[in-house]
């Protein structure tokens, strides 16, 4: 039973980080129907920025929570800036192009960013400092959950709530929903579509940066390639839940997290990544609209 609980919380933690990244995929897909391949790289850049900034701060003699907050803030700012720039360069000129063009451009962006970070930094794994504080009271509770896990879960939950509020109640949230429904119509009623799309990328990238900092602290090391696998997994989560649906992305991410956790725990840890891909292939074949997605009739 203890082993089960351990796997359960492991899966929950994993899943909630996937959720943070998956939301970026799902929001972008909802609004411009593009699989933003470079999203995983945005998350990787967030992790790298946090690593660099925290190291510099530690060098300057700072420590404790202030390092965490400054590093996280820098990660968010730089991830958002990269997300914004990637959209402006790689996707905006292709709004009217055939569907495959922005997708190929996105793959190109992803490869470019990976290699940019590899060349500018290193191709080796770098140890990531443990920025997250210890919560000693948790070990007293004896529920098999560490403080890092607890912080990850809390941060994710808070981010989700904020995102939901933002989309439901702010003007920009309304504009995003309108653009997702019908871009031309939104434009006609006075929504600044370009700005809305930029905001979507910025919000998605912000969440990815938070995910980046959390997962890097959790695993303890990063390299330029982490975005690729995490990106595909998060995309799997988004598809699993029904791409374009925000609660779907969260649900899909949790299902994926648990699947991975239990499969590696009970079946085999050699094939850790295979399970995610297998789940992706199966879900796309069996139910491409996902768990919470609606199947839409194509327009002729």
């Amino acid at each position: 039973m203890d082993y089960f609980l351990e796997l359960f919380f492991g899966g929950l933690t994993r899943g909630s980080i996937y959720a943070l990244i998956a939301l970026g995929y799902t929001m972008v897909y909802g609004i411009i129907e593009l699989i933003n391949f470079a999203h995983g790289e945005i998350y990787m850049i967030g992790a790298f920025t946090a690593l660099i900034v925290s190291s510099v701060l530690a060098f300057a003699g700072l420590s404790g929570l202030s390092v965490l907050f400054l590093a996280a803030a820098a990660a968010i700012v730089y991830s958002a800036a990269h997300g914004f720039t990637v959209e402006k360069i790689g996707y905006k000129p292709l709004r009217q192009a055939p569907r495959l063009s922005p997708l190929i451009s996105a793959i190109g962006m992803s490869i470019f960013l990976q290699n940019y970070v590899m060349l500018a930094q290193t191709s080796d794994f770098l140890p990531f400092p443990s920025l997250l504080p210890d919560l000693p009271f948790l070990s007293d509770l004896e529920i098999g959950i560490g403080s890092t896990e607890a912080i990850i879960l809390m941060t994710t939950a808070v981010s989700m709530v904020l995102l939901t509020l933002l989309i439901k109640f702010t003007k920009m949230g309304k504009a995003m929903r309108a653009t997702a429904q019908d871009r031309n119509m939104a434009m006609l009623v006075g929504v600044d579509v370009n700005r809305t799309i930029s905001y979507t990328f910025i919000i998605g990238s912000t969440l990815a940066a938070i995910g980046g900092v959390l997962i890097a602290s959790h695993i303890g090391r990063i390299n330029f390639y982490i975005g690729f696998i995490a990106g595909i997994k998060a995309f799997t989560a988004a598809v699993l839940g029904g791409i374009g649906s925000i609660p779907g992305a969260v649900l899909g991410a949790l299902v994926l997290g648990w699947t991975e956790s239990f499969a590696t725990g009970y079946v085999s840890s050699d094939y850790e990544d295979v399970f995610a891909f297998l789940l992706l292939v199966i879900i796309l074949i069996v139910r491409p609209s996902g768990l919470l997605g609606r199947s839409t009739a194509q327009k002729v």
Partner: peptide, 12 residues
């Protein structure tokens, strides 16, 4: 790096 750049630039 160039391959990635080529894909983006060619598409655009």
């Amino acid at each position: 790096l160039l391959f990635g750049l080529i894909m983006v630039m060619m598409m655009i």
